[in-house]
Design a protein around this nucleic acid. Sequence first.
DNA 1: TATTCGTGGCT
DNA 2: TAGCCAAGAAT
Length: 351
Amino acid sequence: MLSIAQRRDFRQMLLAWFDTHARDLPWRRTRDPYAIWVSEIMLQQTRVVAVIEHYARFMQRFPALDALASAREEDVLAVWSGLGYYRRARMLHRAAQKVQAELGGVMPKTAEELRDLPGIGAYTSAAVASIAFGEAAAAVDGNVERVLMRVQGWDESNASATRLRETAAEFLDAARPGDFNQAMMELGATICVPRGPLCLQCPVQPLCATRGEHLTGERKKMQSRTVSHAFARRRGRVLLAQRPKDASLMPGMWELPSLESGAAPQSLRVLEVKHAITVTNYTVGVYDFSAAGDEALPKTEQVMRWFAVSALHEVALTGLARKVLKKLGAFPKIAAHAKSVTDTDSNMGVR
DNA sequence: TATTCGTGGCT
DNA sequence: TAGCCAAGAAT
């Protein structure tokens, strides 16, 4: 364990490094608590590069808390489409409505109060409170845990969550808590990376007990599955199916209609893609029904609807559906702003 | 405490 | 290429 004087040195060295090496990220250019909140939710278990695009679109569409609170959930999901972990979007939306309805549209300013909002847990409450409001709360994410474990020379046998939280609080720079928290994460994301840490570039290397990789535990191995989906495009529209509202995975979102394996002739097979969702690796076969008659379209219990290709930006698509539609040239390259997203009159007898 | 929730880039 | 992994929260 570092001494009090060593922890003071650690803060000084880390913050000096952060002041000169911090990445220029969109959410670091604002002090708007709402904007910082949105960024923190998007960044949960999601890489910075993946967040940047979605963040810009989200803030353009929902620039302030009241705009998000008054939006429809399906429109929030459409902007979130492709980012994954869609529960985050639903809870962010609900939390905005709660702040608007119960708190007069004013965000809570302490970690403790933020913690009561849907989707805000131990990490996010501390991150928002420290970055947006200057509260001396230690934010402990995966980066911070890894940095602390290496600095202390701990492995998974002696680094409990409680111990890491307590240690993070002891390390925290109470004068610049927001910067310190971000600096710890920045260090973990760019220098103290999981595999092959760049110790020679590390600003706190002299204080680190490990100076290299540390032991990590076993990972659960992935399952593999083969699935088939139907693609049908007619007169600028594509046929999509809605996942059940009570599905555990991506409820209510739109995807290509499912096919029983072997239900479609091989002659219609136009594409094969690999797609991993949580613990399963999918091999996805896509069958083109565009030229087939209505009677040949897959029979399914799912709700199905024809969508204009030009308006697919406004639809809450699954990432897999988006990927396949892009590969088949059925996804708009420029953002469309069509008012009418669906055309129920062209349902063509499909259940 | 252990699972479940997406996706894409990297090695 | 087949994993590995990311600014976690809810249940």
